[in-house]
Nucleic acid binder design. Structure first.
Lengths: 195, 195
DNA sequence: TAAACAAATAAACAAAAAGTTTATTAAAAA
DNA sequence: TTTTTAATAAACTTTTTGTTTATTTGTTTA
């Protein structure tokens, strides 16, 4: 059988087109042309346009999340991990023009109300990542004891909100200042010794 | 009767939408929404979509041309006029993001072959402007005597080509250097005393 | 105030475009 | 060669979009 096109290249092409035109104005013909194939063939990789879009966003978000995860893996303690996580998450998003454009356009990616969040599983991973850092910090007696059910969720929500604010209103010095202050605030509330 | 919407605001809105999406992906609904009216009403201002597009481009080009004309009007002699014309034409285009985007997207605006040029009359004005500068320079005995039938056309064509090159391939230092050299070359060929 | 007029809308219509399905072709592996 | 399936091309369906038309709304003016 003819070797199947790597699904990642499909998502990469789709990401570019969706980011450029938005979901509505992007057509399957555009994406197929980008890939040098016909639109009918796209239906071997996704069951419809909406599905292709969702999986494309999912792919980009997972890559983003993966990069953050990789970055914190090498850090020696929970305090460093927390710090690096906060910094790298924005830094990597800043590098990914396409994902950023989608994030600004599509309110479903980071919804204000998490009910029916199409990317709930991915966001759950992020919350889990935060929780495991907190767990470790508490176990090592570097963090204050906090409720591991609610606090990771809250931290994630606040972080999400700031990212949206930073990019929907064009990123400027004032926004970054607020972001830094927010991270400092969370950090101070969390760490036993403020570093 | 209800006062008619100023045609300039129509063109301004249309310019923004056409520049953002391109002719094909821009819809009359988009433009009407931008103006806070319904698409049907647009047919009081243009006889169809293509016509609206043409007039929109025409409007933007005339404004561009007008600014250049204003800039050279105050200059004291033909040499200064020629110099300012060359400089201001690129400078004003650099300021007009929307027109620049259209110019890059739509090969009909500055066609390689002038036959069936939809903006022939506007471009003719530019040629005429160049010709009048040359006439004046020759009359004042500051320019060499050149053929006023062909030389203005040639200068305009060369200039056009450089503008297209500068913006289709992203504008960079090397491109600007070439542009400067071209202007210098024409100037040296034209002026009796090189300034 | 009422008639006249034009601008704007909303809805209808036609044509084009875009999403989806299917029959067929072609290319690779067994 | 046979089998398998990726890919295509074309058919089909639905939606969108360009265009027209009947109606409404708001101004002017007689």
């Amino acid at each position: 059988m003819k070797p199947r096109e790597d699904i990642t290249t499909i998502y990469e092409a789709a990401l570019g087109v969706f980011a450029e035109y938005g979901f509505k104005k992007a057509t399957l013909d555009d994406i197929a042309a980008e890939l040098g194939m016909t639109k009918g063939n796209l239906y071997r990789y996704a069951k419809n346009k909406k599905d292709l879009y969702r999986n494309t966003v999912r792919h980009a978000m997972l890559r983003w999340q993966g990069r953050v995860r990789d970055a914190i893996e090498r850090e020696p303690d929970a305090e460093r991990q927390f710090h690096v996580m906060c910094r790298k998450a924005v830094a990597y998003l800043a590098e990914d023009d396409a994902l950023r454009r989608l994030l600004v356009r599509d309110p479903d990616i980071f919804p204000m109300f998490p009910a029916n969040d199409p990317y709930a599983d991915i966001n759950a991973n992020s919350v889990a990542m935060i929780r495991s850092i907190l767990e470790r910090g508490i176990a090592e007696q570097r963090f204050r004891t906090v409720d591991l059910e609610t606090v990771p969720e809250i931290i994630f929500s606040v972080y999400k909100m700031f990212i949206i604010r930073m990019y929907i209103k064009s990123r400027d010095r004032a926004q970054e200042e607020m972001f830094n202050q927010m991270v400092a605030l969370i950090t101070q509330g969390l760490f036993k010794t403020v570093s």
